[in-house]
């Protein structure tokens, strides 16, 4: 294992923020795995740390294939993690909307530019990412429909789902989009949580990356074959909105098989305790995403269902 510094942020009163890359093996820049760009991506950092642990062991046992190099960047935005903030710096910038960056602009642009300079030439790029809405997901691989996406490759992670997402203007600043633009086959991996550690899905995330690396001939490793992924387009998910605001009492969790007309959640009046609204499943399907916070606003998405799919 070799550790190198990709970028260093100097501060007047804080210690330097050092972005470090951990590389394994030598040769072709085969695969790069990137952890938290946001300060709430604690689970993502944990997954990357466990990957480094696993790859270190594999390297010690000569299981990195000759002529292949793997890099893991376990954390980018440690300044935000250490102060419990989601975005970077005093101007609260989302680093995952600042790509491709440049070497002469604001600091967030310089950080992501330095990152892209370091990781832009890898064959495969894997980001452990988070969604803009708070909640829990079924573990999945997410890809942008840029014309370069390859769902067959995404299947090789062996996660239950592959989701193809049509990029909106706001997505053009993400790592995934810019990685693809730089000819890296880019995948965003989502496990269940962000702020909290979910051991089960974290292990699933580590196993998915190792499985992919094995299947691409980058490591020698025996692993379970995983799932034959169900590929779906994001616009085909059925979104379930709330009609009222209040305290959210979820009755279904990611992975649950729900039936049309059955209750999915209740919205409770926060002062009188009565049920303001019972949210009903609009279709049969599997819960793909579930809101998990205690409070909910009117009109928010509380569930996303994989329409008419059963376990």
């Amino acid at each position: 294992m070799h550790i190198h510094e990709i970028y260093t942020v100097h501060s007047t009163y804080r210690e330097d923020m050092k972005i470090r890359g951990y590389t394994f093996g030598q040769g072709e820049k085969s695969a790069c795995i990137v952890g938290p760009l946001r300060g709430n991506e604690i689970q993502q950092m944990y997954v990357c740390s466990q990957l480094i642990r696993a790859l270190k062991e594999l390297e010690a046992n000569s299981c990195i294939c000759t002529g292949k190099q793997i890099q893991v960047i376990p954390v980018v935005n440690s300044y935000s993690i250490n102060v419990g903030r989601r975005f970077y710096g005093v101007d609260n910038v989302d680093l995952n909307r600042a790509f491709p960056g440049n070497s002469y602009g604001e600091q967030d642009r310089r950080i992501v530019h330095a990152l892209m300079e370091d990781i832009g030439s890898y064959v495969y790029g894997i980001q452990f990412a988070s969604f803009y809405m708070d909640g829990e997901f079924m573990p999945h691989v997410r890809m942008m429909e840029t014309g370069y996406q390859n769902t067959s490759l995404a299947n090789l992670f062996g996660l239950p789902y592959v989701v193809v997402h049509k990029p909106a203007p706001i997505d053009t600043g993400t790592l995934n989009y810019n990685w693809q633009a730089a000819n890296t086959a880019a995948f965003s991996l989502f496990t269940r949580t962000n702020w909290e550690i979910d051991e089960r899905s974290a292990s699933q995330g580590v196993a998915a990356v190792l499985r992919f690396l094995k299947r691409m001939g980058i490591i020698r490793y025996d692993s379970h074959s995983g799932y034959i992924s169900h590929v779906l387009y994001e616009q085909d998910l059925s979104d379930v909105h709330t009609g009222r605001a209040g305290i959210f009492r979820g009755l279904a969790r990611p992975g649950d098989d729900v039936r049309y007309g059955r209750p999915l959640a209740e919205i409770i009046d926060p002062q009188e305790g009565v049920v303001r609204e019972t949210i009903i499943a609009p279709t049969d399907g599997i819960v793909f995403f579930a809101h998990t916070k205690a409070l909910i606003n009117q009109g928010d998405i509380v569930y996303r269902l994989v329409h008419r799919l059963h376990e």
């Binding site: 605001a245 209040g246 002062q271 409070l295 909910i296 606003n297 009117q298």
Partner: peptide, 10 residues
């Protein structure tokens, strides 16, 4: 307008 959780609208 959207209802917020406790006695208020945005």
């Amino acid at each position: 307008s959207l209802e917020l959780p406790v006695g208020e609208h945005l």
